[in-house]
Design a protein around this nucleic acid. Sequence first.
RNA 1: GGGAGCAUAGCUCAGUUGGUUUAGAGCAUCUGCCUUACAAGCAGAGGGUCCGCGGUUCGAACCCGUGUGCUCCCACCA
Length: 914
Amino acid sequence: MELSKNYNPADIENKWYQHWLQKEYFKSQPDKREPFTVVIPPPNVTGVLHMGHTLNETVQDILIRKARMSGHNACWVPGSDHASIATEAKVVGMLKEKGIDKNNLTREEFLKYAFEWKEKYGDIIYSQLKKLGCSVDWDRTTFTMDDHYYKAVIKVFVDLYNKGLVYRGARMINWDPVAKTALSDEEVEYREVTGKLYYIKYMIVDSGQLTVGSENNSDNRQPTTDNFIIIATQRPETIMGDTAVCANPGDERYNHLKGKSVVVPLINKAVPIIFDEYVDKDFGTGILKITPAHDINDYNIGLKHNLAVVDTLNDDGTLSNAAQIYVGQDRFVARKKIVEELKGKGFLAKEEEYQTRLGFSQRTNSVAEPKISTQWFVKMKELGLPALQAVIDGDINIHPGEKFLATYKYWLENVKDWCISRQLWWGQQIPAWYDEEGRFVVAENEEKAKKIFNNQYSTNNVQLKQDEDVLDTWFSSWLWPMEVFKGISKPDNDDINYYYPTSVLVTGQDIIFFWVARMIMAGMEYKKEKPFSDVYFTGMVRDKQGRKMSKQLGNSPDLLELIDKYGADAVRFGIMISSPAGNDLLFDEASLEQGRNFNNKLWNALKLIKLWQGRQSENHTTEAILIAQMNFNPELGMMPMVLPGSLTEENFATEWFEGRLSKVQIEVDILYKQFKLSEALKTIYSLIWDDFCSWYLEWVKPGFEQPIDEHIYNKTVYFFEQLMQLLHPFMPFITEEVYHLLREQTEDLTIKQFEKSEKPNNKILQQGNILKEVITAIRDVRNKNQIKPKEKIKLHIQTRHESNYEDLEYILSKQVNAASISYTNDSIDNSLAIIVNKDKFYIETGKAINTIVQKDQLEKDLEHLKGFLISVEKKLSNERFVKNAKDEVIDLERKKKADAETKIKIIEESLSTL
RNA sequence: GGGAGCAUAGCUCAGUUGGUUUAGAGCAUCUGCCUUACAAGCAGAGGGUCCGCGGUUCGAACCCGUGUGCUCCCACCA
């Protein structure tokens, strides 16, 4: 079969994925093996996979494939998240484009559209996972709004309510005026913005002369120095909600105002001046307006001083009737107009630029509005304790640990109650049932609710209405590791008992509070056990300038396009090669190119080995002589110095590579255990490219159209198979393809089990290193002296017999293009000399040599060695070093000294002969 | 304001409890090669005050202190 010039991934990747699916390799059922379980962090059904997902899914696939090949029953559960607020926003937008207003739809009609949306985007996500090669068990695909999942969420809500851990109440929450729903604290992102601080004059009145907005002359009353105070605010549009102004009781400037009131400008409402330690005398004007409905601090002060709450905003962020003015106008429009009016009427003392932090809704990017609202909450303190303990005790290991442990602890120790109700339709509807008076009960369905209600309130045949709101999406995803195995809806089933706790959770560090911490809470509450043993946090994927990927910047590549361009293996390689755990990854297409080149390298190595197929020779000796003669250059008129007659010599290459392979197999295993996947990939990459292709294959490569020793051929094929297996978890497609093209196979690589690797022979490895060093040094000399690659040399070795080159001559002569190798005790005239490992190599070219180049090089080496020697001698002449250091260390230094001295001597000898 | 992390070659990063040569890799750069698997390649090379300063030690990229510069998380100063 003719192999193409370059590797073409597209067809091959598709073919193997289909084959794996058909063979059902990714399916998992409980059995006697040890499970290795991963649940996918369910992507939102709002869109397509981005580079962050790609990194996460690749990491998971590597871990799960490695486990599958290591005797585990590997189970990777795929799925998607209904993402209540994000999806609802998208669906509303999509409907708007079609000219449909959500308000004109019934709940049922809307949900129908939402489910259609889910089908469409869920499929896109799943097809991307397939393209990427994710070895998930498709029969276990779970969606957070599946029937069983929905029921599980309701069950948990009811249960927590009955335990007193879920409650309903009026609290200050964060409100999203675009999505028109409550948010949890975690869904608000604070960002630095440049705002303005407005200094507004409030007229002072004695409490006796309160004139509540009735005078027609009030607007014309101009403030003067002694009849007003100045208050700084960022939000002039909320002054209509002021119910007091507040100063610090220790602030002498405002002492005289005790018992007085001020008039809120524009609406002429008198409010009392109160005093509270909370106010910072030194900030702004030292006096603060209190607007309990629109600021958490003001709310708290309001509670303390029994102030009224005047909510001047509607749910959509426009001013409400309570504001009296600019009613119905957007808060930001109203702000501008109010500032203008204040200015016009002389109430604005000054305005200045101000750096501040504003809370934005994570989903709609609108400025979140603090608002008093009746919502449902989860009590977090109690649930948090076991979750904290599990991590502190090391029952759950976080990677990289040092970075996130502190964050995790701090959050759990200071956690506040979680607002879980959302004023949306897309999600699990809250199972609370109300009568007309607003009395309510919580139950799994209407029937049960009625029973409980009738009991509780001694009523009969009451009409109950279910809560309109749905639950926060994270209130469903925190059950994910349990409910994908129906651990909540059908507790104690075979799956949950076998697969739970799962092995490792791979996710972004940005959802440590949203999801990771809460999953641990839910797991501890409902299974009395951690949901996973390890957490592997990946960093954020950024572009190569370090910017976040975003649609606006256009720096977020399309996954499918990348796969089309480079192949899935190359994408996986590119994203893994430079992604140390927990660090941000600067995504650069250049690394995908590197991945593609690596694919091609494998492909070409395959082509080379295929050339040898059918040309194996059983007789080592004869062939070896032939090969040696091929290298013999008749022009130089020399005999081939040593015939590679012994088996040992030929076997050096295979034995050396066997050692390298074992060594790397052991190293890689350790790296997996430490979750250092990118290190593992680098190690395998270098083993394949450098050790296997650049060294080993060159060493065993027969001459043009020459036969190859059968033993070497078989070993080579075996090595290549082992390499493909080692690489398979990272690059599953090409490795499977190469594995099958190498020779007929009865099983697929995907399920081939790793064998235990032998301890490498260190002596041979060391010999290999010396050989490589010698080859490199001679090549360097050839290069520097402009000896053409095709030009043959004669090599004379002056050895101190610490290293034995006889077994290596065959390889050595081939690699440096030497016509002969001989041994000498004297220096060789008209030759280039180099020193490697205290042995001297003379390179004879047959032409006159340029002594200057050589002299320069030798002098440079000499200088370096002398410097080195001085540093070693300094150490050894330090009495305290000799007294205190360990014997091994001193011996080593002595050896270093002796070695350096020997080398210096050899170089000086060489220099003197030049 | 509180906390965490980072700082090593042009870039991205390794560097395992302080001592195997005056620090390693990949990418990029430079030089020479269309050598019969591969120019998406081969052979070779150059490149670093290990952020500054101080300390501990016989010995520091590594430990301690301090300064500087980045990054992230948390927090209710109008």
